[in-house]
Simulated scan of single mutants.
Amino acid sequence: MIGVLLVSHSQLAHGMKTAVEFVAGEQKNFFSLGLEEAGVATYRAELEKLAASLPKEITQMIIVCDIPAGSPGTNAYDVLAQTDLEIEMLSGMNLAMLLDMVLMREGKEFYQLIEDGVKAGKASIDRMDFSEEDDDDNF
Rank of each mutant, 00 (worst) to 15 (best):
L5A: 11
Y43R: 09
G73V: 00
D66E: 06
Q112S: 12
V20L: 08
F139S: 12
A51R: 05
H9Q: 13
F31H: 14
S8I: 03
M1P: 13
T18C: 09
K49A: 11
P55V: 09
D84I: 00
Y77H: 01
K28E: 15
L85W: 05
P55F: 10
G39S: 15
M128S: 09
I125W: 03
V20W: 03
L85G: 07
G107E: 14
A45I: 02
M89E: 02
F31W: 14
L85Y: 10
L54C: 12
K49V: 02
F22K: 09
Q60F: 03
F31V: 07
E46N: 13
L103Q: 11
L35E: 08
L95S: 03
Q112W: 00
E106N: 14
L50P: 09
N94H: 10
E48C: 00
V23D: 02
L98N: 03
G117Q: 02
D126W: 00
V40Y: 05
T74A: 02
G3F: 12
D134C: 10
I67V: 08
G39T: 15
Y111I: 01
L12Y: 10
V20N: 05
L12C: 04
S8K: 05
P72Y: 02
G92M: 07
I63P: 06
D126H: 09
L80T: 00
F110G: 06
Y77D: 00
L6V: 05
S131H: 12
A52V: 02
I2L: 15
N138L: 14
N138G: 07
L50M: 15
A51Q: 08
T83M: 08
E106P: 09
G3Y: 11
S124T: 13
F139R: 08
A19T: 09
I114Y: 02
E88V: 04
F22E: 06
G121Y: 03
M93S: 07
K56E: 15
L12W: 04
A76K: 01
G34M: 07
E57D: 15
G25Y: 08
M1W: 10
M61Y: 06
G70H: 01
L80N: 04
F31S: 10
D78E: 11
L33S: 06
G3L: 12
A38P: 07
L85E: 05
L6Q: 06
N29W: 13
L113Y: 06
P72C: 05
R127M: 12
L12S: 07
P55D: 15
M101F: 09
G73P: 03
M128W: 12
S131G: 14
L5K: 09
E48L: 00
N138F: 15
A52Q: 13
K56C: 01
N138W: 15
D134H: 15
A96P: 11
F110P: 03
A13H: 08
Q112K: 11
Y43C: 02
I62M: 13
F31N: 08
G34W: 05
A120D: 03
E106C: 06
V118W: 00
S10G: 09
A76F: 02
F22L: 14
A96H: 06
I63L: 12
D84G: 13
P72M: 03
Y43L: 03
L50Q: 10
T83L: 08
T59Y: 04
I58L: 14
M16G: 04
T83E: 07
D66P: 04
Q11E: 12
A120Y: 03
S32E: 08
A81W: 00
L50F: 10
S91F: 04
L80E: 01
P55W: 10
G39P: 12
M61V: 10
